[in-house]
């Protein structure tokens, strides 16, 4: 993570020093912009975010810092995060003495539900932080950062999955904290429109498609029975990653920002 920040800092500094000399105009000569977005995700995976207003519509706040490197190009760094709960369809609770390290299995007598060999907590709690480096290409003749643009994203999702014991209102944290994290490379693309009012305020809207690779790999693992060799813990981590992929696959973005 530290390496990523270092890389981004070097990249941003290089771009700044290069373009400051190059006199890239930007909108009215303004080059730096900061946005606060709220991504609204239609829920494709029956996940429920703690930040959501409804079960079917998840929210993902984001902050994005950008710099125009050319008349119609800008680079940005974007951090977004959310969390959500995934029900495991079991009525068991943690007091039953289940263990996450036991092998994972499915109840063959009831194929509609995935159950654990030993009863376990009822819900998954997954929190996600996404760190994206993006490049914005402005449409037609728009001058960055005003107007419509196409954005390419490349970054990392840090997926942290835990149990949530709803009955006891407790978040169960694994003892081995480092192992319940998954780092997933991700790519994405967005199409957005920035409107500028009073020459400083930036209003924007658009949509984004994102792909978390870990979720896709997990999905492949589940669908090819590789999951049978998982432990409960692995199962839960990959289950979280898989649902995260579905959750962040498509977002509507709205946001406000300032340019300077």
């Amino acid at each position: 993570m530290r390496g990523l920040f270092l890389l981004l800092t070097i990249l941003a500094t290089t771009c700044y020093s290069y373009t400051a000399q190059g006199q890239a105009p930007g909108y009215l000569g303004k080059k730096l912009f900061l946005n606060i977005d709220c991504d609204v995700a239609p829920n494709f995976s029956s996940l429920r975010s703690q930040m959501s207003l409804t079960r079917r519509l998840g929210l993902k706040p984001a902050i994005q810092l950008g710099y125009t490197v050319g008349t119609q190009t800008a680079i940005t760094f974007r951090v977004s995060g959310t969390n959500y709960i995934y029900p495991l369809y079991n009525n068991y609770n943690t007091d039953n003495g289940s263990s996450p390290d036991l092998p994972y299995g499915e109840d063959l007598t009831n194929p509609d539900y995935r159950t654990f060999r030993k009863p376990l907590s009822a819900n998954l709690y997954t929190s996600v932080m996404q760190y994206d480096f993006t490049v914005q290409f402005y449409d037609g003749s728009f001058i960055a950062p005003a107007g419509a643009y196409f954005e390419l994203l490349m970054g990392l999702s840090v997926i942290n999955t835990n149990f949530l014991d709803i009955d006891n209102k407790r978040l169960m944290i694994y003892s081995d904290l480092t192992n319940n994290k998954l780092l997933s490379p991700r790519i994405g693309m967005a199409h957005m429109r920035n409107m500028i009012v009073f020459d400083r305020l930036l209003l924007r809207y658009g949509y984004e498609f994102g792909f978390d690779f870990m979720g896709m790999w997990a999905f492949t693992a589940f669908s090819t029975n590789v999951a049978s060799s998982f432990t409960n813990k692995n199962f839960l981590r990959y289950e979280g990653a898989m649902h995260n992929t579905a959750y962040t696959f498509f977002n509507f973005r709205v946001g406000i920002g300032i340019i300077n």
Binding site: G29, D139, G140, S141, G147, I196
Partner: peptide, 27 residues
């Protein structure tokens, strides 16, 4: 300089167009 925008002629679009044109001439 020719500009094409898939957007209505909002004030910021006009401003941006004029500024950019004059800026390019001035540079």
């Amino acid at each position: 300089f020719f500009y094409e925008y898939q957007m209505s002629d909002r004030k910021f679009v006009i401003k941006s167009t004029l500024f950019n044109s004059i800026f390019k001439l001035k540079k």
